[in-house]
């Protein structure tokens, strides 16, 4: 018959083998969630820096829930503007966060496209990342004859695969927001 001591020893060994295997829990910090709630596009007249136009696309509660609030661009015909885009996380009203800088820091993995439809607007001269490839946090916007249409801002994420003349379809879409455009 097995002695009680042996039984206890066996049990202890079993417990040792089986215990102590709890997974370390990586607690995810609340503020580390990637959430872009707002896009703000500010256009400044090249010849008159006091003339600015701002368009916003804002969805404070993120995907789902309340509908986004969108303010389009109203431009004068035949004017060239310099544009600057900002991406914000305004989900916490007390500490809105500017994410544009981070896009620029990771510029080698990102590219912003501006696609115009219907309106007589041309986007050129996107700024470049550290490798000299187009980034697009700023660009030139030139209006022509009066017209209406849309401007779609697309932020692409393509780690390791960004190249010159990438089509807009390449990479994962982080942002695709449509802004109404009126040239009058």
């Amino acid at each position: 018959m097995l002695k009680p001591q042996k039984l206890i020893l066996g049990l202890t060994l079993f417990a040792l083998v089986t215990a102590g295997c709890k997974k370390d829990d990586d607690v995810i910090p609340e503020d580390e969630q990637e959430l872009i709630t707002t896009i703000q596009l500010t256009l400044t007249n090249v010849t008159n820096s006091t003339e600015t136009v701002t368009a916003t696309w804002r969805d404070i509660d993120g995907p789902g829930g309340a509908d986004p609030v969108i303010t389009g661009l109203t431009l004068r015909p035949n004017v060239t503007y310099t544009g600057r885009i900002e991406f914000l996380d305004e989900s916490n009203a007390n500490s809105p966060e500017d994410i544009t800088e981070e896009v620029e820091e990771e510029g080698a993995d990102h590219e912003i496209f501006y696609e115009v439809s219907g309106a007589n607007l041309t986007v050129t001269n996107r700024n470049t990342d550290a490798n000299g490839l187009p980034l697009g946090t700023s660009a030139n916007f030139a209006s022509a004859a009066a017209s209406t249409g849309t401007l779609t801002v697309i932020l692409k994420h393509k780690p390791g695969s960004k190249a010159a003349n990438d089509p807009v379809t390449k990479g994962e879409t982080d942002i695709e927001a449509e802004l109404p455009v009126q040239i009058q």
């Binding site: 990637e34 872009i36 994410i99 993995d109 994962e172």
Partner: peptide, 9 residues
């Protein structure tokens, strides 16, 4: 597919 934008996490 990628870590949060601009985060070290």
């Amino acid at each position: 597919s990628h870590k949060p934008l601009g985060s070290e996490f």
